[in-house]
Amino acid sequence: MTSTIIDEAAKAPVVGPPARQPRKRRSSTTRKTLGDWMILVVAILIGLLIAVPFFLILINSFKSPADYNAAGPLTLPTELYLDGMVNFWQRVDFPQKLWNSFFISSVVAILAVLVSLLNAFALGIGRVRGRTWIVLLILLANMLPQEVLLYPLYFMFKTVGLYDNQWAVIIIFVVIQSAFGTYLLASVLGTFPKEILEAASLDGANKWTMLWRVVYPITKPTLSVLVIFFFIWTWNEFLIPLTFLVSNASQTVPVSIAVLQGDRLMDVTTTSASALLGLLPTLIFFLIFQRTLTRGITAGAVK
């Protein structure tokens, strides 16, 4: 089980003896040279550079417009100013937008992973004839520029009465996200250990049982990574929700933020506060499921 390496590594400094003392295992690799420290410093500097815009959002979200005009974007706020945030929260009915985004993104994430798994089972394990071309056809969903879909889907959903309905957006993104999922899972399942499947088929398992009792549990780490990706990607989508969710009550968080930008009443610090509120949900979601990402994206963990 290679999947436990990171977890062990994460626990080691806590459980194990302090670094000064000789370690029981791989003592030679834990000795830190000057070069190691330099690499660590470089890695931290890169991290800081990447995080700068986030610090800027943070400090300007709690600044009053007067403070901002006087001291500019780089200083810390002189007092804790919450009006910008409160203002934005109430203006867009933020809890409602949060729920809309959460509902759409979670349903898409789960359904898209399910579709990806079914597709990849046939392509990776079943090795259906012409699978490279089928993967390619499915990847079309990823390749098409989204503008192409707007006119035709607008007419189609209007005809069946799903226009301005969240399910329209859900169906579209299940297809788009599962294209990536199918591609990734099919190549991962293509290297699925044959011995396990052979053993299961000797036990008389049929394909459906094998999918859920053998393939599903073993690929679970990859599937959860996909759930996280799909959730975040769908949450951040803009063009299609903007087009298909016209009524205020069905809008998502990014759409509601963007719609407010045209508003002349929005000052810089309210904009910053809206950016902070817009990124917090995905940030929290990411931090909660961070560990899942470390468990690996491949079924190779069984090797």
């Binding site: 959002i57 975040i232 951040n236 910053s272 995905t282």
Partner: peptide, 11 residues
Amino acid sequence: QILPGVVAAIV
């Protein structure tokens, strides 16, 4: 990567 594109653009 987790920053909504719209929000990133504003910032």
